[in-house]
Amino acid sequence: MKKIKWYLLSSLIPLFFPVFIIIIIMGAVGGGSTGGSFQSPNGSTYTDHWSNGDPYTHNLLVHRYGIKAEQLDGFLDTLGISYDKKRINGKKLLDWEAKSNLDVRAIVAIALNESSFGTAGVATNPGSNMFGFGSFDSNPENANNFNDEVAVVRLTNQTIIGNKNETFKVQDDKAQKFASGSLNTSTDGGVYFTDTSGSGKRRAETMQKLDTYIDEHGGTPKAPEQTTGKTRDGGGVTTGDVPQGYSLTIEINTSSYTGLSYPWGQCTWFVYNRGKEVGVSFGEYMGNGGQWMNAPGYQTTHTPTEHSALSFSPRQAGADPTYGHIAFVEQVKSDGSILISESNVKGLGVISYRTFDAETAKQFTYVIGK
């Protein structure tokens, strides 16, 4: 396995330690408790402060609603670091949160502890990123291929979600397991960093400081409750192929499906056309199934959403180890379980169905059509 390493300046304060990361894209994505949280109409999940009581066990895909750019800028300025305000600022941080679905407080914590907001190590290279994403021991300059925005999106999807690292405590625990040789990547997911000095705890402490600063500088409003009615238990169309207890809103008829940029019979061909069939639009050039979650201009969420595209990472839930997979969400039931339709699982152009229970469904990435 290759390691990703952050080369930091020796003059930095002790908060900043070199961190080693291994990215292993495998297995199903991991979930985390979101107790006390709720979903907004746009699919993001919010909580008043922390999803599970404290920042160390907080699910990093759950957000604090209504954080302002001015509050983030104010906190950054209190740290006494001569960072580039055009490169990182409150407005950009909130934009990165929206595109990656990673809690903005976690984005700040990772950028601070990895590169002191881009002022240290490989993060100072032209085109490189402040999160150290893509910086291998044997080729640290590889980080130059990922700018800050690309890095935070891929870091979220590959390292946080794909490798089941959705809390800072999990990251520390898995580093310890890796050091002792007891980490089972097939069940635990890949390790985030191999440093065992408590990098996750330090990041959680940064999140807490930022959260406290927000409280002391205007706080945040209460998040709106979900009122969109995204669940459907009854009604619709059933056929002999649809699993018992589930249904489609309208029948699937592939006779009118077109090829465009997606080869006939492939999973991408089906989801693009199925979307059109129910009145949802996806782009003609969104790439392989696993790439749809990173397609620019499309909202993603981990909240199961009817008539969205479910983008599987490589190997996730049996997806292709190189290209990933894409499926279409036909139904979300009130118990949180989902029905998906998909092509080319049982053969090219063959449409089949699968169901997932609520806990599993929360682990996937859903792409919202237009």
Rank of each mutant, 00 (worst) to 15 (best):
I13A: 15
V29H: 08
G32V: 01
P41Q: 13
G53F: 07
N59Q: 06
L60S: 02
Y65N: 01
Y65D: 02
G74W: 07
I81Y: 00
R87A: 15
D95P: 02
N101M: 05
A109G: 03
L112P: 08
N113W: 05
S115H: 01
S115F: 00
F117P: 02
A120K: 00
F133V: 02
G134C: 06
F136V: 03
F136K: 05
D137E: 15
N165K: 06
K177W: 13
F178T: 05
T187D: 10
G189M: 15
G189S: 13
V191T: 13
T196A: 12
S197K: 05
L210V: 09
T220K: 11
G229V: 03
K230R: 14
R232D: 03
G236F: 09
V242S: 12
L248E: 14
I250V: 14
Y257T: 09
Y262R: 04
W264C: 10
W269H: 03
V271G: 07
R274W: 10
E277V: 01
G279Y: 06
G290P: 00
N294R: 11
H302T: 07
H307N: 15
A309S: 08
A319K: 11
P321G: 07
F328Y: 13
D335K: 09
S337Q: 11
S343V: 12
F356R: 12
T360P: 00
K362I: 02
